[in-house]
């Protein structure tokens, strides 16, 4: 009986790590939520007035600070960047989506590290040879790379590592949500990336939200045709996942068929007729950019001071 309970609970824990983020994805965010956070929408607040190059610099700065300082600095940056989502168009909705994305990343990363991280790394990271066991896995779980038991330190280690990713992901989405593909193209051309490559990049940036939109449509059409109509409602997310999966190839076909129209449209506007392009609205460094760059310098100085005070990378990352 004891054997059965251990197995059932262990598999439930395993599927919690797998299914809970997916449930958040399907229920709380949805494909339209992803579409919202990967698509540009016109607005007037400071992020929208900022030069895309400065946003890229901000992203790099956040990444560097999160990777060289202790975990709670990453957590503070996550909260700060997430709060700034409220200034975006439909800010409340984007804030909630960003919050769920962060929760998903935290649970996903914690669960990706906690059961797998070798004890010797945890002992080294926490300067403590005694680890607190929370749950002992069945012995065959080691085949999947699991350690014999789940420990408190393993969970804390996974959580702290997640704080290296959350802030960077949120900051990166700001660039996509607040810059037109054309602005990104102009910024990247300024640093010497050829027009052909930036053109492909812009197509890719515009395609990402469209993929979510078309998969969403495909899933809805499949539901209208009766997919999972006799199944209990608890199974609906799984049918949605199956519908999304089977909708991928038709969506690819639909998008590549439309590629010819885009190509004709670009060619008739003399795309690549000359090696260099001129722009009606050149990218400039304005007041908002200067303020953002000053903030970057200030944060770099603060980071150096924090590292010198001993608040550098607290846990060795061996991913």
């Amino acid at each position: 009986m004891n054997w059965l309970i251990i197995n059932v609970v262990s598999w439930m824990l395993f599927f919690f790590g797998a299914a809970f983020p997916v449930l958040i994805l399907l229920k709380a965010i949805g494909l339209t939520g992803f579409m919202k956070v990967t698509r540009y929408e016109s607005y007037h607040t400071f992020y929208y007035r900022m030069n895309p190059s400065v946003k890229i610099i901000l992203g790099i700065m956040v990444m560097v600070v999160a990777s060289v300082t202790i975990w709670w600095i990453g957590a503070i940056m996550t909260v700060a960047i997430l709060s700034s989502y409220l200034t975006l168009k439909e800010g409340k909705r984007k804030f909630i989506t960003g919050m769920f994305l962060t929760i998903m990343t935290v649970i996903g990363t914690t669960w990706a590290f906690a059961p797998y991280t070798p004890y010797v790394i945890l002992q080294e990271a926490f300067h403590n040879s005694h680890l607190t066991t929370l749950w002992v896995w069945p012995s065959y779980f080691t085949v999947m790379g699991y350690q014999p038991a789940l420990t408190t330190q393993g969970l804390i280690y996974g959580f702290q590592i997640s704080m290296r990713f959350t802030a960077v992901s949120l900051m990166s989405l700001v660039l996509v949500m607040t810059s037109t593909p054309s602005q990104v193209l102009r910024s990247l051309n300024k640093v010497g990336i050829p027009t052909s490559l930036t053109f492909s990049l812009v197509v890719a940036m515009r395609t990402v939200p469209r993929i979510f939109e078309y998969i969403d449509t495909s899933v809805k059409i499949q539901f209208m045709k009766g997919l999972g109509s006799n199944a209990p409602s608890i199974m609906r997310p799984f049918y949605m996942l199956a519908g999304a999966f089977s909708g991928i190839v038709p969506v690819i076909v639909f998008l590549v068929r439309g590629a010819k129209d885009t190509a004709i449209s670009a060619d008739t506007r003399a795309f690549r007729a000359y090696s260099k392009r001129t722009y009606m609205h050149p990218m400039t460094i304005g007041k908002v950019d200067k303020m953002a760059l000053s903030a970057v310098i200030l944060i770099i100085l603060m980071t150096v001071i924090m590292v010198m005070m001993g608040f550098g990378k607290g846990i060795s990352y061996n991913g």
Partner: peptide, 28 residues
């Protein structure tokens, strides 16, 4: 130009898979 668009669409699919769809399916 058409090739460059195909490349962009393919890269977008690879990214959507890597960071969203595949990332969550992979957890199972």
């Amino acid at each position: 130009t058409l090739d460059l668009i195909y490349i962009g669409i393919g890269a977008a699919f690879a990214v959507v898979w890597e960071f969203y769809i595949g990332a969550f399916l992979g957890k199972f």
